[in-house]
Design a binder for these strands. Sequence first.
DNA 1: TCATTTTATTTGTATATACAAATAAAATGA
DNA 2: TCATTTTATTTGTATATACAAATAAAATGA
Lengths: 146, 146
Amino acid sequence: MCPIMKSSASRFNKCLYFSANALARKVEKIATDSWKQVDLSPSHAYLLLTVIEEPGVQPGILAAELQLTPSTITRLIEKLEQKKLLVRTSEGKLTNVYPTPKSKELYPKMKTCLNDFYQACTGVTGEGEIKRMTQHINKLNDKLTG
Amino acid sequence: MCPIMKSSASRFNKCLYFSANALARKVEKIATDSWKQVDLSPSHAYLLLTVIEEPGVQPGILAAELQLTPSTITRLIEKLEQKKLLVRTSEGKLTNVYPTPKSKELYPKMKTCLNDFYQACTGVTGEGEIKRMTQHINKLNDKLTG
DNA sequence: TCATTTTATTTGTATATACAAATAAAATGA
DNA sequence: TCATTTTATTTGTATATACAAATAAAATGA
């Protein structure tokens, strides 16, 4: 590869498929590092945060908020239940998810992780650019969902 | 959820982790649809395209160009070998990957898929915005790579 | 009121990808 | 020149996620 090329340069760097995937993987890695202190993967962490902040939230709501499918939400909840970080109660077809004392105890540390992640991102290119970027991506997301 | 909220709106829509992942999954889905005509997943398709255009390319080069790890490249190659779409030859520690007649025959159809994907993306928000977006993402990717 | 449809969740299974370790060849340098 | 280090690739295993089907409860409407 030509040494002047930056890392994203390739036959496909014009292609949104590559750019979007590469970005997601890199951000995933930064997030994974940030959440290591509490021994949670990013998606488990965000789900748990949501449950702590909205006790009793239902899986369907979690799916909508985290933009994941219901089946993925079920799998994440199962794992966190095993770790005694949350509990499920069922009534009819509805399920409510609640934090446990253990996870509530973890909450301040999780806030720190969230902040660490944000710092790690803004450290690379500056707060303004990350915010703008995130907004742009959100707007595109909305259009692609439409 | 407040009905005025757009789909990306949630407690975390300020978070690059969510935005980047959600975008990647949506783009992945559009790409998957585009490549269905040739019965290939997007990553298999892009790898195969690269091999057809650079016969003899080595796995390490593919990893760099497609921004995937070498182990993922090996796995993709194995699958495409099974489908008789490419072959590997080894000499010492180096491996060369070549297209087969079958894959060369597929090439024009693949070009069509590539174009379909591009049309599907630009159809949503316009060609200019997709190009700008992709460039911005690439720039951020480069910074995150260090 | 009860058959039908819709909604919420879970289960079975598959795909995409990565990390760490293994393998094996090539390059290096004392 | 040969022991050590580096490089390229593969293998074993794990994680994140989705789709389709199953389940089961609730809502609907004739």
